[in-house]
């Protein structure tokens, strides 16, 4: 139990920043550049770690609550989700709801800490963040409902069990494919990637997540970046397990397969970011509503 917990956390804490590195590398290769080294995210974190803080005089303690919650929540949520074939350290009936609501908690404090600066830009980003997640959250629930229908339990561990392999080949394969697409889009929204948000742009008016953390600095900014990387890995774990439900039975090969799946996901995100443009803002809700409708349709297919 303890060893499993340590392995789980070690995988998460060590590998998470790598995903961003892979995405950046993929984009660089698409652009015909060599790009930053794969470990650049780690160097960035280390650099931020050594820096000092700068606080606006408008801010209060809530400003620091954002990074704290943003780092803690993915850590805790990762305990509920299986990493590939490695089972989750903590698993109980109904933990999928807790999983969703933990991320909602981190959103609450990220947005509150953005509003704490009193900057209109950060307010703008905050408003967009809550609006888009209002549309993404029901989609996530529909996806989980489909998975719950196919399994015989209500914990993430049983939801993402080995029965998925047979489910892909049965009649439910069609809806699994649909929810895979939906889940990918939710992942892109929640982790603020193109085409919903641009993590690299420096035009404040077009950003969502980046603009909310504009005033953070030093270790606090590092915590936010690290928390975002952890969040991406935790949500990616859901997707990777759904797409590759194989298991070998030996923990090392299982772990390696999981990491390979995550790397593949990062490459896919990099490809999407390279070949797509950012959506116009009014289009984003339309796409999200479309995604939600797809997931509803997937649910109807399995409930039928």
């Amino acid at each position: 139990m303890i060893i499993r917990l340590i392995l789980h956390l070690a995988l998460l804490l060590l590998f998470a920043p790598m995903l961003n590195g892979i995405i950046i590398k993929t984009k660089a290769l698409f652009g015909g550049r060599i790009g930053a080294p794969l470990l650049q995210s780690y160097y960035d974190l280390a650099r931020l770690w050594r820096k000092g803080f700068v606080f606006s005089r408008t801010t209060t303690w809530v400003f620091l609550a954002g990074p704290v919650v943003g780092l803690t929540v993915p850590l805790l949520a990762s305990l509920l989700i299986p990493f590939g074939a490695l089972p989750a350290p903590i698993s109980f009936e109904g933990d999928l709801i807790l999983f969703v609501y933990l991320f909602a908690l981190s959103r609450f404090f990220t947005v509150a800490s953005a509003l704490d600066t009193g900057s209109s830009f950060e307010g703008m980003g905050a408003a967009r963040e809550v609006t888009f997640s209002c549309l993404a959250e029901p989609t996530l629930l529909f996806v989980l409902l489909v998975l719950a229908r196919l399994s015989d339990g209500l914990s993430l561990d049983t939801l993402l069990g080995s029965h998925l392999l047979t489910a892909w080949h049965s009649d439910a394969g069609a809806s699994l494919g649909l929810i895979l697409v939906c889940l990918f889009l939710v992942l892109l929204v929640e982790n603020s990637r193109i085409p919903f948000d641009d993590p690299n742009t420096h035009l404040e008016l077009t950003m969502i997540h980046e603009v909310m953390v504009l005033d953070h600095s030093g270790p606090a900014l590092g915590m936010i970046l690290y928390g975002a990387a952890l969040k991406m890995m935790v949500m990616g774990a859901l997707l990777v397990r759904l797409a590759f439900p194989w298991q070998t039975g030996w923990w090392l090969s299982d772990a390696l397969m999981f990491l390979a799946g995550l790397a593949g996901l990062a490459v896919l995100i990099g490809v999407v970011e390279s070949i797509m443009a950012r959506l116009r803002l009014p289009r984003v809700p339309q796409v999200l509503v479309g995604t939600m409708l797809l997931s509803i349709f997937a649910l109807v297919l399995v409930l039928r």
Binding site: P285, Q286, V289, F297
Partner: peptide
Amino acid sequence: VPTLILGV
């Protein structure tokens, strides 16, 4: 969007 909702 309403058309899409109606369609679904």
